[in-house]
C-alpha cells in the first residue's frame, strides 16, 4: 500500500522534529545568530542615542537624562535604604491583584459559561462594567478602602479580572461541536464533558486572558498609587516627577518594566508547559 508509506514518511519527519518545508521560518540567509547580532546592534544604537543626544545638547538633560546618568541614578535608588520598602509594597499589590483578579475571572467565567441562563441575565451588566474606563474608579476605591495597599489591590483586580472572564466564557462557548457530540454519543455525563473536553479546549484562551490580566494588574496598582498613596513605586515615581528628578523617574520606570517582564516570562514559560498542544503561535 503506497498510501500507507507516504503517510508514515511525512509523520515520521514531523514527529522526530525534523523540519519539513512548511515548518522552516523565513530564513533571510545566514540563520539565527545573525539576527541576534542585529538585534543587539539595534539595542546598542538606541542606548548610544540616549547617551549622546542629551550630552550633545540636542535634548535637554532635564527632559532626557543621559543613559549613564540614568544608570547611576538607578544604582543609587536601588541601593538606598528606603527602596526595598516601596518595591515590596508594589510587588505585593500586583501579586495579590493579579491572583485574586484571575481567580474571580476564572470562577465567574466558568459559572457564566456553564449556566447559559445566568449568562444571559448578567452579560449586559458585565459589558457595561467593562465600558467604564476603570481609572475613574481609582478615587472611589481610595475613598472606600483607604490610602493603603487594599485600594490598589482592588484597583488591580477591577482591571485584571475582565480579560480572564471574557476569554474563559468565549473559550467555553467555542468548544468544537463535534467534540461535544462525540462525548454525547458515549453517554458522557455533563461533568465528564466539562472536565475532559470543555475545560481543556478552553484553556488556551483562558491562559491568554491570564497573561493580559498580569499587565492590567500592574497598571492597576500603579494608577492606584498615582491617585493616592504614601508608599510604593507609583508613589515614588509621582514624587520624583513632581521634583523634576527625571533620572530617578526613569529608574523607577525601568524597575517597573523589569517586574512586568519577569512576571510575563514566568507566565509564558508556564503557558508553553501547560498548553503544550497550542499550534497557533
Amino acid at each position: 500500500m503506497t498510501t500507507e508509506n507516504t503517510d508514515l514518511r511525512t509523520t515520521e519527519a514531523t514527529r522526530t522534529g525534523a523540519p519539513t518545508a512548511e515548518d522552516v521560518p523565513l530564513d533571510l540567509e545566514g540563520g539565527q545568530w545573525k539576527w541576534r547580532l542585529g538585534t543587539l546592534a539595534t539595542g546598542i544604537l538606541i542606548f548610544a542615542l540616549w547617551e549622546l543626544l542629551p550630552r550633545a545638547g540636542l535634548i535637554s538633560p532635564i527632559v532626557l537624562p543621559p543613559f549613564t546618568d540614568t544608570m547611576a541614578a538607578l544604582y543609587t535608588l536601588v541601593t538606598s535604604d528606603f527602596f526595598m520598602g516601596h518595591f515590596l509594597v508594589t510587588l505585593n499589590e500586583i501579586f495579590w491583584g493579579f491572583l485574586i483578579g484571575t481567580t474571580i475571572g476564572l470562577v465567574v467565567g466558568i459559572v457564566l459559561g456553564v449556566f447559559e441562563p445566568l449568562k444571559r441575565l448578567t452579560y449586559p451588566f458585565v459589558v457595561a462594567f467593562q465600558a467604564i474606563p476603570k481609572i475613574v474608579l481609582a478615587p472611589l476605591f481610595i475613598a472606600w478602602f483607604g490610602y493603603g495597599q487594599t485600594s490598589k489591590i482592588v484597583m488591580a483586580i477591577a482591571i485584571g479580572f475582565f480579560p480572564v472572564l471574557i476569554n474563559t466564557m468565549v473559550g467555553l462557548e467555542t468548544v468544537p461541536n463535534d467534540m461535544i457530540q462525540l462525548m454525547r454519543s458515549l453517554k458522557a455525563s455533563k461533568m465528564q464533558i466539562f472536565r475532559k473536553v470543555s475545560l481543556p479546549s478552553a484553556s488556551p484562551l483562558m491562559f491568554a486572558g491570564i497573561k493580559t490580566a498580569l499587565t492590567f494588574a500592574l497598571i492597576g496598582a500603579i494608577v492606584g498609587e498615582f491617585v493616592g498613596a504614601a508608599e510604593g513605586l507609583g508613589f515614588l515615581l509621582d514624587t520624583y516627577n513632581f521634583q523634576l528628578r527625571i533620572d530617578r523617574v526613569f529608574s523607577v520606570i525601568i524597575i517597573l518594566s523589569l517586574i512586568g517582564g519577569v512576571f510575563y516570562f514566568v507566565l509564558e514559560w508556564l503557558d508553553k508547559k501547560l498548553i503544550f498542544w497550542r499550534q497557533d503561535v
Binding site: M179, L182, S185, L186
Partner: peptide
C-alpha cells in the same frame, strides 16, 4: 438517546489535541 453499543465517526477525526 445514545447507546454504548453504537459508535460514531465524523468527517473530522475529532481527536482531543491535548
Amino acid at each position: 438517546g445514545p447507546s454504548r453499543d453504537m459508535g460514531i465517526m465524523f468527517q473530522r477525526a475529532v481527536l482531543l489535541p491535548w
